[in-house]
């Protein structure tokens, strides 16, 4: 430890003077000031800076994960009519409440929400800093933004095309695909063990129906809740499949449940929901849409 230094009387005067004199020369004579003239000059902000939000409408799927993770409830989903995309739901931000923590951009499963270096957000009244979806829309910002997001090539299943031929399971070198029967539908679907998959892509190559497609998937660092179906309660109405933003729910027919009509013919069989969990983003909209308590999803807001 440095001991207490007791300067001599002359040093007591000269040493601080030398230090301030050096600073004087540096700023005023050499012209290297320590400050910037703010409105004219601005500091260089790093790209990770968390400023105003920007939303890529085409990438956004409207799942509402950003709304769920927001600690201060400053985001909401709003119904928008877009000439290109039709009737969609997109989030808006109330900057008056925003903490600028960046969790919304971090949790976004499709990397549609970004935060720019724009920081001059003040306005004269409270309503004008409440930014709706169209205010934060910028479809061109995303590609300019370099973000280290963990991506992985994974086979993604389109269940409506899958015939259950088991070719993919036979081809996988890691033996990570197992054909699991779907209850009461007499069909099978490949269950992929994502922990073992090392993105060979052989399963997608052999798939004749193009039901398995290798896709770049953003992997979230957040563990999300997973929906679970209570089959006895499911009425087959399809409300969950219509609400699902990532198209992870398929309605499959259950043979043997046809009702016999009055004229002796058989009606259509009942349907049930099937979740493809690899596609699920864990937003909980299926749980909110289900009116028959057929979906269990602990941890999702009502």
């Amino acid at each position: 430890m440095a001991e207490r230094r007791i300067p001599k009387p002359l040093g007591l005067v000269l040493r601080p003077m030398r230090r301030t004199g050096k600073q004087f020369v540096r700023t005023l004579i050499l012209g290297k000031p320590n400050t910037v003239l703010y409105p004219e000059q601005k500091l260089d902000l790093p790209q990770v800076y968390r400023g105003k939000h920007v939303l890529d409408f085409k990438k956004c799927i409207g799942c509402g994960n950003c709304v769920t993770i927001c600690p201060n409830d400053c985001m909401w989903l709003e119904k928008v009519e877009d000439p290109e995309l039709g009737k969609i739901e997109r989030p808006g931000v109330d900057l008056g409440r925003c903490l600028f923590c960046g969790l919304c951009a971090e949790i976004c499963p499709t990397v549609a929400l970004h935060m720019t270096t724009e920081f001059e957000l003040a306005n004269s009244d409270r309503e004008s800093i409440k930014l709706g979806p169209s205010d934060i829309r910028d479809d061109t910002f995303g590609p300019t933004f370099v973000e280290e997001r963990r991506t992985r090539r994974l086979p993604v299943l389109d269940l409506s095309r899958c015939t259950g031929c088991e070719k993919c399971a036979g081809e996988c070198p890691e033996i990570c695909i197992a054909m699991m029967p779907i209850d009461r539908t007499e069909r099978k679907k490949p269950e992929i063990n994502l922990a073992k998959c090392n993105s060979h892509g052989k399963c997608a190559e052999v798939c004749l129906e193009k039901a398995l497609v290798m896709t770049e998937v953003y992997e979230s660092y957040f563990e999300m809740p997973e929906p679970k179906l209570i089959l006895d309660n499911c009425s087959g109405c399809g409300a969950c499949a219509r609400k699902c933003p990532s198209e992870a729910i398929y309605m499959l027919e259950m043979p043997g449940t046809e009702k016999t009509l009055k004229n002796g013919k058989k009606g259509k069989p009942k349907k049930r929901a099937v979740f493809v969990l690899e596609k699920c983003v864990g937003c909980g909209r299926c749980y909110q849409a289900c009116r028959f308590d057929a979906i269990e999803m602990p941890g999702v807001r009502e």
Binding site: L45, P46, V48, Y49, R50, L99, F100, C101, G102, L103, M115, Y221
Partner: peptide
């Protein structure tokens, strides 16, 4: 700021890294 993206309230550590 260059590391975390903010000047005062950093919000940088996460549970698990």
């Amino acid at each position: 700021q260059a590391l975390t993206g903010s000047r005062l309230t950093y919000n940088y550590p996460r549970i698990g890294g």
